[in-house]
């Protein structure tokens, strides 16, 4: 006997088509908004003289993570400039920053919701498992169909890819706040909001910052994959290096990605670490 094939693939394809047909206006709107954000921010970064950008990064690095990180950042950025990777690097940073911000705007409230309601927790966790085990190429295809080639599908895929750890760690951080501290807040008559803002979030901050750090690094790790759907920047350079067998260019672009990753990691890691010692 031959078992009939369950038409999962066909169904998904049909759903994507239907979504495109009936909600096309919505996707167009999202596309416009994202293009507007990414375009302007990229222009701003590219338009800024590299020295000023380097000075700003050095200052932020110094304030948040200390002098060593600041010096390392300056050297790394000069190397990127020197390798002639400045413009693609700015495009990549712009996309990563915007993707991270969007991820966090979604993840942190969602993480808080999973901590506050067992119901939400039970609903969201399997979805996160699904998101994290599914290779990004798989959702790249429908996203491209809905949003066409360009920055937008790359950004959306990046957001999807970068969200799960931020949601998980936000939820975990809040659940880990000692029960008697939450009880104390309640005993003194705190509202739910006061409990969250004055006790749970501050105490969960090191864990939440670890989630933010993960989120940024995952976003950055997507740049090469995002380049496959038309995102430019360093990912595009790596991809071109592969296609043209230009080892030198591919390596320089890859190195630039690594430098940016290390800078972002060190700076955001130290924020979380610093909180940890005071709590």
């Amino acid at each position: 006997m031959v078992l009939p094939k369950i038409p999962i693939g066909d169904t998904v394809a049909w759903l994507v088509d239907a979504a495109d047909e009936y909600f096309g206006w919505l996707f167009d709107f999202i596309t416009d908004v994202i293009n507007f954000l990414v375009g302007n921010f990229t222009d701003l970064l590219i338009g800024m003289p590299p020295l000023i950008f380097i000075a700003i990064v050095a200052l932020i690095g110094w304030r948040l993570a200390g002098i060593k990180v600041a010096i390392g950042s300056v050297l790394g950025l000069f190397l990127i400039w020197n390798m002639d990777m400045w413009k693609p690097a700015m495009e990549t940073i712009s996309l990563v920053v915007i993707a991270t911000v969007i991820s966090l705007i979604i993840s942190i409230p969602l993480g808080i919701a999973t901590a506050r309601s067992d119901m939400v927790h039970r609903l969201v966790m399997p979805v996160l498992d699904f998101m994290q085990t599914m290779p990004p190429f798989v959702y790249l295809v429908p996203v491209v169909i809905l949003f066409a080639i360009g920055n937008v599908p790359g950004l959306i895929a990046t957001v999807v890819f970068a969200m799960p750890p931020a949601i998980r760690l936000t939820g975990l951080g809040i659940r880990q706040v000692p029960k008697d501290l939450v009880e104390a807040a309640e005993a003194f008559g705190a509202t739910e909001g006061q409990k969250l803002v004055k006790v749970q979030l501050p105490l969960a901050m090191p864990t939440i910052m670890a989630g933010v750090n993960q989120c940024i690094l995952l976003a950055l790790s997507m740049v090469v994959i995002a380049a496959m759907v038309g995102v430019g920047g360093l990912g595009g350079m790596v991809l071109r290096g592969i296609q043209r067998l230009d080892v030198g260019m591919g390596f320089e672009a890859g190195l630039s990605i690594v430098i940016i990753a290390i800078i972002l990691d060190r700076v955001t890691q130290k924020i979380g670490g610093k909180r940890k010692t005071t709590t």
Partner: peptide, 13 residues
């Protein structure tokens, strides 16, 4: 109502 707890339950931050 004021409350005092066995393990103090002070806010470390």
């Amino acid at each position: 109502l004021g409350m005092v707890f066995q393990r103090f339950a002070l806010f470390p931050h």
